[in-house]
């Protein structure tokens, strides 16, 4: 992915030098033309065509925004209740992600969706210890959310 982006930027710079016009508009036009060129040569370059992964990353951002909104509403409901009857608990969440940045991204997504906070990562990086604000009925749905996040992070990072 990185090498393809680098080739694309170099092609855009080449386009600027060919036309002898050094403006942002010229760079953008050259970048679009370079995108076309990289798409034609995608079989000869390492990894898949990088726009696919960019779209996946944008999808992850969109899902995260929606989840943030929904989870904040649910925490608001808990806070506004006259009698707060929640059952906070810690639970261990087994993860299949391996790389450091994947685990960091997953932990950040879990922490930023309210109601759950990652408190620690185990030494073998196989388990995240999560503190949830309400575990009565949310446990299963939390697992669903986490599965979706984890699945999307896997999709983003697969070659």
């Amino acid at each position: 992915m990185a090498i393809q982006i680098l080739i694309n930027v170099l092609l855009a710079l080449l386009w600027m030098f060919i036309n002898n016009s050094f403006q942002v508009s010229s760079f953008l036009f050259g970048y679009i033309l370079g995108l076309f060129t990289v798409y034609i040569m995608r079989k000869f370059l390492p990894e898949e065509f990088y726009l696919k992964r960019v779209i996946k990353i944008l999808k992850l951002v969109y899902v995260f925004a929606v989840e943030l909104f929904k989870a904040n509403l649910s925490v608001l409901k808990i806070v506004m209740k006259p009698q707060i009857d929640i059952e906070p608990a810690f639970f261990a969440y087994p993860t299949e992600l391996e790389k450091d940045w994947q685990i960091t991204l997953l932990s950040s997504l879990i922490t930023l969706t309210p109601g759950t906070v990652v408190v620690a990562v185990s030494h073998d990086q196989r388990t995240l210890y999560v503190h949830a604000i309400d575990t009565k009925d949310v446990d299963e749905s939390i697992h669903g959310i986490k599965r979706s996040f984890e699945k999307m992070i896997k999709e983003v990072s697969e070659r």
Partner: peptide, 12 residues
């Protein structure tokens, strides 16, 4: 130090 600093390190 915390048990596993992986989040802090990759954020650094």
């Amino acid at each position: 130090k915390q048990d596993n600093d992986v989040i802090l390190r990759s954020m650094t």
